[in-house]
Design a protein around this nucleic acid. Structure first.
Ligand code: DTP
Length: 965
DNA sequence: AGTACCC
DNA sequence: CTGGGTACT
């Protein structure tokens, strides 16, 4: 069914995508295998990924420890909140992250168990991950209770062995739309079916061996696996076929439901008039690129379609160990020291078990009254002698005593003990954890080696990072685009004429990718080298191996359980079978096949079983002599065929890909406007300004707080938000493009017409189309505005800080003004009227919980219409807003340096009045004024929300889809 | 060092 | 909210 889509991309014939493993169970037929290798094309659906999500994890751990709790409603308590609860409690309406008071109202019999100490949960969490690792090393942890497992190789094994049935185990995600896309016949259906059987086997074994129940989602990529896992809870599993990706994704109530789109990004896309995933899919890629940068834009779009090439990255020991404690109030040095001592003691025990030593300590604090995300930290190197004999001599106490003054030193950098302070959290973190035996020399050489590899593309082995099949045949960019395309095509094509709007939307995504890539900026020169390298390696393998290499996707690694490397052979015999009592474990099966494989390769006088137990470099050498290219992994314990190597965190961070990714396509902020970031400005201000200790609070007889600033400090505040400039031109985007041609310097696209026509195409809500396919002519209000050249920028951009030298009555009064126009808002700091979306992510299909009856705390399930008017910097927690005296403008308050705000709040909370005097000049007040009425500045383009706001696009790029190429 | 993101 | 983690800038 060769078809072409309106994105200039032709999709390959299905035959080329299929991989008929089932025809080739006879391993001895080398010729067939060679042909197979040559003809192998890997579809975009080649992987099989399972997402495991443990049911109410903490509660399960507690119920395992005390089975009597099973029948009772159980809540896990951390301070004031019930972080999670068992399903008995959920019957009563208790939910995750609920206040204890609310939970007790819902369920007076609720049994509460403290879950503040995570030790047991952490332990069980690693038990689970290690258990999964017995099946395959491709296990990625996400939090304590979730694991992604790439079972592609296990699937292939079952295909080779004919060990599967053509059915789904557990639930199969059903189409949600009348006009469903047609099934893909690349073979993914069988792979997902097998994946569902593997998931069922693993879940059964997990319950048997560890007593843990969980949910699983089976899909061809991580996002879909995760999303589909939540459709049936608890203790159930769901599979989704690639062609139903749209059905799944469009059934989500909000873009916030997509992992990777967090609260900040959600607000930003909301500010673009995007409120559903359908909206996001249809958003103009160029507008998104302008707003978020091309990489983030593309990631957003891909995720919105359920497209995700990010690999499963094998977990390794944690990079940091931290302990924290939160509390209502810590305001004395002695109290702080006591708390820090407790945290350190706990950390020392943990680091002792870990076996590594920290080279860095970090202390973080949270001051009262500031938003909950807010933290300040200081870190320092740990002197080498502190931990020198730590693990050998067991001198934990000594090291602990030495650590305390170091951390208290950090504390003094954060808090001046003599001044008022009010902390609500302290966190101590050990970082830069290194193995004890790795002295400076070892470290130097290991770093040196890594750097050398990074810098020399010719020495880089492309296949090293290609842990999954779908990477292998991507010989060029075009092919990759086809893969992207293919993934969506099935889900979009209602019929072959491809008349649906979603096809158009989809073609835009492709178009967008193509525009960027055509310009030669998407892939670096390194990537070209990488592609050549890959071809070479494949060619070599065809010549050098006898075909088994390519044909059998052997995971050629020693099996390990726990953290201890077991001899592979004995493990084969001793491992209890996690899959089925009557047969061997998959892991054991691997070893058998590996030995069998080795026997075929090696001459008779070499004992394969002995080779299995040799150190990795020796194995590598022996096999190299017999034409098998092996790859040694960093840990030095696994080795595997190049095509099946495990992607570890360190590898993922060192790949050519990530090098390419880290190099920005363009740096808009550098090319236009100020080079100084907001953060940097604040820093500079704090360094040079007069918020010195002499300016600190003086008790005053007044009954309320007054803020008296010198003129200088007024300017300070102004400069902190001063880069928010005013846009009064009709079309911000158009002007942006004119003024920032460098944004698109490499794309050679006439952007303005594209924007217009793009919007014209995308005029219908996806959701509406799904239900009725009528209403074709509806144009969203937001889109109308776009077409009319109306301003779509967040209203906050249009505010400007104005200083006055006398007390202004408008300090608080502005918000009464009816800000009816699209311009000139004063942000209102009202409590968010959280508006429930009538379903929530993990139970949007499941009916057990009735989301409409509860108001979860601000999360991906809630929307706050007012929030889009408030930038991240400016938002204050409700707590602060309530406590803040009336005559302090929250707007201004929000702009103050952290330590100043912290001190003010400390006084507010203690009820001590305070006046700030800066010595000279009249008291100055700062107010926020309507742009139109107060600003005489000429209109300029708003730069703050450009794609260049690089500081604000952090995580989307590193979550799903970041390392996807 | 701070700020995104995940649970 | 709590008590952890990750990554990027
Ligand atoms: N900010 C947070 N967001 C989400 N989870 C958090 C947060 N802070 C702590 N947690 C903990 C509490 C929960 O036990 C756990 C959430 O895991 P999650 O998979 O969402 O639910 P759960 O495993 O408790 O129940 P279930 O998956 O059955 O609904 O992580």
């Amino acid at each position: 069914m060769a078809h072409s889509l309106p994105g200039h991309i032709e999709v390959d014939d299905d035959e080329e995508w299929s991989r008929p493993f089932e025809q080739e169970s006879n391993k001895k037929n080398d010729q067939v295998q060679r042909n197979h290798v040559k003809n192998a094309k890997v579809s975009a659906h080649d992987r099989t990924v399972i997402h495991f999500d443990v049911d109410c994890f903490y509660a399960q751990v507690e119920m395992l420890r005390n089975p009597e709790l099973r029948l009772k409603p159980l809540g896990i308590q951390q301070k004031n909140i019930v972080v999670t609860c068992n399903y008995v409690a959920r019957e009563y309406g208790v939910t995750k992250l609920m206040y204890v008071s609310d939970a007790m109202k819902k369920c007076p019999q609720l049994v509460l168990v403290s879950g503040e100490d995570l030790t047991n949960y952490r332990h069980t969490s690693y038990q689970i991950s290690e258990f999964l690792k017995k099946y395959t090393p491709h296990v990625e942890r996400l939090g304590f209770d979730e694991n992604f497992v790439d079972v592609s190789e296990l699937v292939k094994w079952r295909q080779i062995d004919g060990d599967f049935k053509p059915t789904f185990y557990g639930h199969e995600f059903k189409k949600q739309r009348e006009m469903a896309a047609s099934k893909c016949d690349c073979g993914c259906e069988q792979r997902i079916q097998i994946g569902s059987q593997i998931a069922a086997d693993i879940r059964e074994a997990l319950q048997k061996e560890l007593g843990i129940t969980c949910c699983a989602g089976i899909a061809h990529n991580k996002v879909l696996a995760k999303l589909v896992a939540g459709t049936h809870k608890p203790n159930q599993q769901t599979s989704i076929l690639p062609h139903l990706a749209q059905d799944l994704v469009l059934s989500l109530p909000s873009p916030r439901c997509i992992p990777g789109i967090g609260s900040k990004m959600h607000k930003r896309i909301q500010a673009q008039g995007i409120s559903t995933i359908g909206d996001l899919q249809k958003a103009d890629p160029l507008v998104l690129a302008n707003e978020f940068g091309p990489e983030t834009a593309q990631t957003l779009l891909k995720l919105s379609f359920g497209v995700d090439h990010s690999p499963v990255i094998a977990f390794s020991p944690p990079q940091t160990l931290s302990d924290e404690d939160s509390f209502k109030c810590c305001n004395s040095y002695q109290d702080a020291e006591r708390r820090i001592r407790d945290l350190l003691a706990s950390l020392m025990k943990r680091i002792a078990e870990d076996g590594r030593i920290p080279q860095t300590v970090r202390l973080s604090i949270r001051r009262a009254g500031l938003h909950s995300n807010y933290r300040e930290s200081r870190q320092t190197a740990v002197p080498g002698n502190v931990f020198r004999q730590f693990h050998t001599s067991g001198s934990i106490g000594t090291a602990e005593k030495e650590m305390l003054p170091i951390v208290m030193g950090l504390f003094k950098k954060l808090v001046e003990p003599k001044k008022h302070f009010h902390l609500t959290l302290i966190n101590v973190c050990f970082a830069k954890l290194v193995k004890q035996d790795s002295g400076p020399l070892t470290q130097f050489f290991s770093k040196h080696n890594l750097k050398a590899e990074n810098c020399d593309p010719s020495s880089f082995d492309y296949c090293k990072i290609a842990n999954c099949g779908d990477e292998r045949v991507k010989m060029d960019d075009t092919h990759e685009l086809k893969n992207d395309m293919q993934e969506e095509s099935n889900s979009h094509l209602v019929n072959k004429a491809g008349t649906s709007k979603s096809v158009k939307a989809q073609s835009q995504l492709i178009d967008f990718s193509k525009k960027i890539k055509d310009a030669g900026s998407f892939f670096s020169v390194l990537n070209e080298d990488k592609c050549k390298m890959k071809k070479t390696v494949l060619a070599d393998k065809e010549q050098d191996s006898d075909g088994n290499v390519e044909k059998s996707p052997i995971l050629f690694s020693k099996v390990q359980s726990d953290s201890e490397a077991k001899p592979a052979v004995s493990s084969t015999r001793q491992t209890t079978c996690p899959l089925a009592p009557t047969t061997e474990s998959s892991a054991a099966c691997f070893e058998k096949k590996e030995i069998h494989f080795l026997k075929n390769i090696l001459p008779n006088d070499i004992d394969a079983e002995v080779v299995m137990q040799l150190p990795c470099p020796i194995q590598k050498e022996i096999l190299a002599q017999h034409g098998i290219l092996m790859e040694e992994l960093p840990e030095g314990r696994h080795f595997s065929l190049i095509s099946n190597s495990v992607l570890t965190r360190s590898q993922a961070n060192q790949t050519v890909f990530s090098t390419a990714r880290k190099r920005p396509l363009f740096s808009p902020r550098k090319s236009v406007g100020s080079n100084v970031s907001n953060t940097e400005k604040v820093k500079r201000i704090r360094e040079r300004e007069s918020f010195s200790s002499e300016d600190m609070p003086v008790k005053d007889s007044g009954t309320h707080i007054m803020l008296n600033f010198s003129e200088k400090n007024v300017r300070t505040v102004e400069s902190m938000v001063g880069n928010v400039e005013i846009q009064t031109e009709p079309s911000a985007l158009k002007e942006n493009l004119k003024m920032n041609p460098s944004l698109f310097q490499s794309t050679e696209v006439n952007v303005v017409p594209d924007i217009v026509t793009g919007n014209t195409f995308m005029s219908k809500s996806q959701g509406k189309m799904l239900e009725t396919d009528t209403d074709q002519n509806v144009i969203h209000d937001a889109e109308k505005e776009k077409l009319q050249g109306r301003d779509l920028r967040p209203p906050a951009n249009q505010t400007q800080i104005q200083s006055t030298l006398k007390r202004s009555e408008t300090l608080l009064g502005e918000e009464t003004e009816p800000s009816s126009t699209a311009h000139s808002h004063i942000p209102k700091y009202e409590p968010n009227n959280s508006q429930d979306i009538h379903t929530c992510q993990k139970s949007f299909v499941n009916k057990e919980m009735d989301p409409s009856q509860k108001s979860p705390p601000a999360s991906r399930f809630t929307e706050s219409p007012n929030c889009s008017k408030i930038t991240g910097k400016m938002s204050l927690p409700q707590f602060t807003l309530k406590k803040l005296p009336k005559d302090i403008n929250p707007e201004v308050f929000a702009q103050l340096p952290n330590d100043i705000r912290g001190e003010i709040m400390a006084h507010v909370l203690m009820g001590t009045p305070v006046t700030y005097t800066t010595g000279v000049g009249e008291p100055a007040f700062v107010s926020v004024k309507d742009t139109k009425t107060t600003s005489s500045k000429p209109p300029t383009v708003c730069k703050r929300h450009n794609a260049k706001s690089s500081s604000s696009q952090k995580s989307l790029l590193n979550y799903f889809s970041s390392k996807d190429k």
